[in-house]
Amino acid sequence: MNIFRLAGDMTHLASVLVLLLKIHTIKSCAGVSLKTQELYALVFATRYLDIVTDFISVYNTVMKLIFLGSSFSIVWYIRHHRVVRRSYDKDQDTFRHYLLMIPCMLLALFVHEKFTFKEVMWTFSLYLEAVAILPQLVLLQRTRNIDNLTGQYVFLLGAYRGLYIFNWIYRYFTEPHFVHWITWIAGVVQTLLYADFFYYYFESWKNNVRLQLPA
């Protein structure tokens, strides 16, 4: 494992912790897209089917359990928690999941490395993860006054994706035959989706003003 991969995983972990902190401590999910969280839960559920069939390392298994557990508990909190669910911006969070899920499933059925159930589901999870942030970005754009924790959550997620690209570049040069076009293209597309957000995030940070995305 290289430093970029580790830093990427830690940023990913930090993003989830920031979100759980917001929801659990402040008892608010204002500005958080349930649609995006449901898509992430589906991403992890379809990607980590190998958790029961292949053992890679203790680190790998523990992280998979954390991402599965945290994504499903975040969804549970927003949908069912007595206090948290009241802060959910239902009327603003209107992105339709299936517009992302169906094209990703069709693409995975046609473009994959191997045509097996596990492999197609794994490929579907890569495509879906690439676009799963879209409902959250749309919601941010509609929300005036994005709070700090929500802004940091999206920033950390974007940083995680960026670090994975450096990880692939590193692995490409250090590991023979490390070529995974599908993973790389989906990963680059995903990272590009954050470009606009990053621009405004750094602008607000530089000027020391509250983060706001233009409508």
Partner: peptide
């Protein structure tokens, strides 16, 4: 660990 397996990433 440093496996060349395609699925060792999260």
């Amino acid at each position: 660990f440093s496996s060349a397996s395609s699925h060792d990433e999260l």
